[in-house]
């Protein structure tokens, strides 16, 4: 099985220093790959590099990102744009800021259907209705006429999920899609993403720092620290038998998905210092 996304030796840096060091990771068709690591590890940077939206302060210094055989980094902006939305889509982190406050939900949701899939307005809206049905939004007809501020955070995230799946992309990148949500709706949204992924057989790159989530929905995982891949493999194996000391410490620091009541150990200072030294070497 050839990988859908194949990142090879990707390096990136900012004015301050390296941000990604020789990152290699591949995601196979139809699987869910987790990208795990603490804040600042470079998870979002990888996601942004794939989508071609790196901020001006970050520069790719080496490596390739192959998507179904084409190197995304070598594409012209126009060619990349042809792929985005249709073949690669994003479920963003913050549903509150990711919808245009001045446009109705229906107009935003049908952008892709009309401009990329060439549907007329009527058909696009019909399709949007069934999409909203799929993400369990009641009264989709009315929601389409609403402005973003009239919907709750969970509703908005459902809309954004529907939008991401609307053109049946091969890959969806979800960058911490539940962190901005209420704890009570996090679980529902998570389940929704997993169900949709299974139904559409979409390949999913799932960025998170919640190992509990990883255990629940991800087939494989990549552990990142300081822009470096520490460990990669099947979720079940890594969780059962972590090879890297950092992963072990991370596991000890997170509530066990099967034993949430257990007391937690912080990642030991000494280990952090050790890793820092190793990376900068």
């Amino acid at each position: 099985m050839s990988p859908v996304i194949d990142i090879r030796n990707l390096s990136a840096r900012s004015a301050v220093g390296p941000i990604l060091r020789d990152v290699s990771l591949s995601v196979n068709a139809g699987e869910v790959m987790a990208l795990v690591g603490e804040s600042g590890a470079g998870k979002s940077t990888i996601a942004k590099a794939v989508l071609g939206i790196l901020p001006a302060g970050i520069e790719v210094t080496g490596g390739n990102i192959f998507f179904e055989g084409t190197d995304l980094l070598a594409l012209s902006p126009a060619r990349l744009r042809d792929m985005l939305g249709v073949r690669i889509a994003l479920i963003p982190q913050d549903p509150l800021t990711s919808l245009n406050p001045a446009r109705r939900i229906g107009d935003q949701l049908t952008d892709g259907l009309r401009l990329r899939a060439g549907m007329n307005r009527k058909r696009a809206f019909d399709r949007a209705m069934s999409l909203l049905n799929d993400v369990h939004i009641r009264e989709p007809e009315r929601v389409l006429k609403r402005y973003p501020h009239e919907l709750s955070g969970g509703m908005r995230q459902r809309v954004l999920i529907a939008q991401a799946f609307s053109l049946n992309p091969h890959v969806i990148i979800a960058d911490e899609p539940t962190t901005a949500l209420d704890v009570t709706v996090q679980k529902q949204v998570l389940r929704l993403i997993r169900d949709m992924q299974r139904e559409h057989k979409t390949t999913l790159l799932f960025v998170t720092h919640d190992l509990g989530v990883v255990a629940q929905i991800c087939d494989r995982m990549t552990v990142l620290y300081g822009g470096k891949v520490l460990e990669q493999g099947f979720t079940a194996q890594i969780l059962k038998n972590p090879q890297s000391p950092y992963t072990r410490a991370l596991l000890a620091a997170s509530p066990r998905y099967d034993q949430p009541e257990q007391s937690l150990e912080p990642v030991p200072e000494a280990l952090i210092a050790e890793l820092q030294r190793e990376i900068s070497a």
């Binding site: 989508l51 939206i53 744009r81 042809d82 792929m83 985005l84 939305g85 249709v86 690669i88 889509a89 994003l90 963003p92 913050d94 800021t97 990711s98 919808l99 245009n100 406050p101 952008d111 892709g112 401009l115 990329r116 954004l160 939008q163």
Partner: peptide, 13 residues
Amino acid sequence: QDYITLARIKGLS
């Protein structure tokens, strides 16, 4: 803003 970035990812011109 995020919604502009997302619009770009949607592939809008």
